[in-house]
Design a protein around this nucleic acid. Structure first.
Lengths: 221, 221
DNA sequence: ATATGTGAATTGATTCACAGCG
DNA sequence: CGCTGTGAATCAATTCACATAT
């Protein structure tokens, strides 16, 4: 596990893994940095450099084994063992994620769900019984929870995070549009579509088609 | 609109804007790069450098006007005018997004929804009438659509993207876990929670609590 | 002949120190 | 005096050229 790997490299490795999975599913047995680069929309240099952080996985002159490189990437990314996931916050999004069928496909197992609403505690939503968030520490130890999906309302985010941290959970997938504080041993990845939408506004500002006086779309000025 | 702004800066501007909105809502009238930095979990240097790409918005010795800086960031990010959004792909996620109440709060207006499924075309899902995806080009011109939310099944992603591009839409918020190809005048922001989850696995690999033989959690080795 | 793996060069982003203004 | 704004320095990431292996 080398140090100093750019986080952009980790993101790209996830993309390469998806491309390799598609290739393997399509029955392709060998590939190259060129092909991976095209599919991932990066350069072949970048693909090779990204892989070089972790070792040498190809054969000079003939490229990479699709299956072999896929296994290596799964190992590098830590996707060869099942991760045990809990959802914290069973509102609309939490319930939708509980229902999401493809989680298991990728060795992520939903093992618990939590909410502070007594109306929800004890009910089964999306196939899991909802427990009270105060049970987090006990349940995390019993159920060996690795990852929490944080899907609580924004004002509750930090308090819920503190409970997750106190429970010894080291990974948080944060769906709440706010920055939460955690000790350094806890890693937080954020998924925030409103933030992505606002970035998009920045990039297309001034590019959006302009309608001229006759109602015809013309290029931006 | 300065060139060469790091994309990380754009992401952080979105965070600063959220912090400023919270501060304004809380009735705070002035702030500083230090306060913004703490809330956004970056350094004060970084805040000032990020803002410096676009101008000078503070007062030396006394910091920033919360309201003033918030307006500047809204202007910089292109959030002072309404953006017209269409959803392409009215499956589970598309319907959930159509139902999402907070879009309008941020000057994003849902103006149309598309699907290829004849069963869905003509129905009203999440408050919008669903049109056939082949109507995209016509509708985009009539309704002046700026942004498409891409929420189609993965195998349909590129074909749907091509229709979006042909319709003259310049911004795509891509929820599909794949890389789509677009001409350079179209900007794509990707929201992929499975990718974020896999990155998380990488970072916590080796950090996850280890259970010793007596069933007690101990630090990772 | 061909495509990988990698050190060197370049480009880009962040950090810093302090000059500049209120 | 305090806090912003910014050029210079450091640090990090990407690009490139080519040596290397099959």
């Amino acid at each position: 596990m080398p140090k100093g790997v750019p986080s952009a490299t980790v993101s790209r490795l996830v993309t390469y893994l998806r491309v390799l999975t598609d290739l393997e599913r399509a029955g392709v047995s060998r590939t190259s940095s060129d092909i991976l680069a095209t599919e991932a929309q990066v350069t072949a240099f970048q693909v090779r450099k990204d892989l070089a952080y972790f070792g040498s996985f190809g054969t000079r002159g003939s490229g990479y084994s699709v299956h072999g490189l896929r296994q290596e990437l799964r190992r590098i990314l830590g996707l060869t063992r099942p991760w045990r996931v809990a959802i914290v916050g069973m509102g609309r999004l939490g319930q939708a994620l509980a229902d999401f069928p493809q989680l298991g496909e990728f060795d992520f197992e939903l093992v618990a769900a939590f909410d502070v609403d007594e109306q929800k505690v004890g009910k089964v939503l999306g196939g899991v019984e909802v427990r009270h968030t105060d049970e987090l520490a006990r349940a995390a130890a019993d159920l060996d929870i690795d990852i929490a999906f944080l899907t609580v309302p924004t004002p509750a985010a930090q308090a819920a995070t503190d409970k997750v941290v106190a429970a010894g959970i080291v990974g948080i997938l944060n769906f709440v549009p706010t920055v939460v504080s955690t000790p350094p041993e806890v890693w937080v990845e954020t998924v925030d579509f409103l933030a992505a939408l606002k970035r998009l506004a920045y990039y297309i500002k001034g590019r959006a088609p302009v309608i001229d006086e006759s109602g015809v779309k013309v290029g931006s000025t």
